[in-house]
Amino acid sequence: DAQKDGDLWIHVGHLTKGKLSVGQTLSATVDESRRSGIRRAHSATHILHHALHCTVGKDATQRGSRVQQDELRFDFAHNQALTAEEVRQVEDIINECIAQGATVTTELLPIEAARKKGAMALFGEKYPDEVRVVSMGDFSVELCGGTHLSNTGQVGLCRITSEEPIAKGVRRITAITGPKAVEKGRETDELIAQLQRMLKAPQAAELVAKVESLQNEVKTLSKQLSELNSASVADAIDALAAQAETISGVKVIAKKLEGVSRETLRDFADQLRDKHSPIALILGAEIEGKVSLIVAVSKPLVKEKNLHAGNVVKAAATVAGGAGGGRPDMAEAGAKLVEKLDEAIAAGAAELKKQLGV
């Protein structure tokens, strides 16, 4: 890192081996590869600023930036996200300016002369009487003290990788240049080629149709599976109802189910409530490594017995390190402690019995 303190240039570094002593003479060597990458990214940042003005207007002023080897980020004033078309337009303008091979020049000018030349300055920054002006072709003039290329064509290529908000009224664009931009393109090409092989699509243009076909197939199979699950549930609910404990005329079921999905868990609750009322139940299962709980009571019992499914599922979920809630007649919850699933179901059953006056 190089910094200026008055007329003194200070180089900041970290000693990795050996030792230093006062008065020792040192030599500094620039890492040319790294410096070239920084130049590409920095010059591309100026071109990006110009491209934003062309696309969204002069109010897209700089609010911050950072450049490193073939990577840049640029913060600018703007009140809404750029559309996909605007991002493409910005990237196109940048690469058009690169392709022009425009000359990059630097000169020291009095601050007023620089302003008359149209040099853009950062809002709120204080500048000395003499400033360094960096010009690129006829499209960019900025006050800047950083390292730059001598020709925009030396950037090679610039690709925008993201556009996002960072504060109210401030957006951030990140981009890559030179070899990193080329490598990004190669990675994308390889990904597309891999998808073509997996989906047996001779042409990349066929990928969308292939994916749509798979999505439709998954939708059809999911519907068929759901119908099979419903039929399987119908076969199982009579056995569950036969095991129910009857309290104050209400069937009470507390059961852990194996190998079910959340949809199947809800299907069990719905069918038991529809076919075996009056009923109050709590069902639990391990799904995707987590606890899933559902509590359902026949709707008339909410008024007749003052039952509340939300309070029951909350009592159960708390035991397993979770939370949940819902309507008085139906409530669901999730929890993390799978090893506490049996205890959670027992706690829910106890709360149901308590509400039934046991």
Rank of each mutant, 00 (worst) to 15 (best):
K210L: 03
H14M: 14
A269K: 08
T61D: 15
T103M: 15
K314S: 10
T105W: 13
K180S: 11
V12E: 10
H11P: 06
L214Y: 07
D31G: 04
G259E: 02
D70C: 07
C97V: 14
I176C: 05
K275D: 13
V56P: 04
Q154N: 05
K353R: 13
A51G: 06
G259S: 05
V133M: 09
F76C: 05
R66A: 15
A254P: 08
R327G: 00
V291G: 04
V312F: 00
W9N: 10
V134A: 08
P128T: 05
G118C: 04
M330C: 04
L257F: 03
F123I: 08
H50K: 13
L281C: 05
V208E: 14
D329E: 03
C97Q: 14
E343S: 14
S135F: 11
G156N: 02
H42V: 05
L157K: 01
H148G: 01
K251G: 03
I98V: 06
D274E: 14
T105L: 15
A205T: 12
S135D: 09
R73M: 11
T264H: 05
K126W: 06
V104G: 07
S261Y: 01
T29R: 12
H308A: 00
N151W: 03
L257N: 04
L195C: 14
S222R: 14
A234V: 10
A209W: 06
K340D: 11
D189T: 14
K180C: 06
P328W: 00
G249K: 02
E286D: 05
E96H: 09
Q224M: 12
S298C: 02
E91T: 03
L356I: 00
A44S: 06
I10P: 06
C158S: 05
V134R: 12
E206H: 11
H14Q: 15
G310I: 00
G259Y: 02
A254C: 09
P179W: 01
A320Y: 00
S222F: 07
V252Y: 01
L48I: 10
P110I: 06
R73E: 08
E107Q: 15
S21Y: 12
V131A: 07
P165E: 02
V291D: 02
A269S: 11
D59C: 14
G64M: 06
P110C: 06
D5I: 15
V338E: 03
S298L: 01
T106L: 15
L225Y: 10
D189A: 14
P110A: 09
A201F: 04
R66C: 13
A28W: 12
K354R: 13
L207F: 03
K17P: 08
D92I: 10
V87A: 04
A347Y: 07
L26A: 03
E187A: 14
E217S: 15
A181C: 04
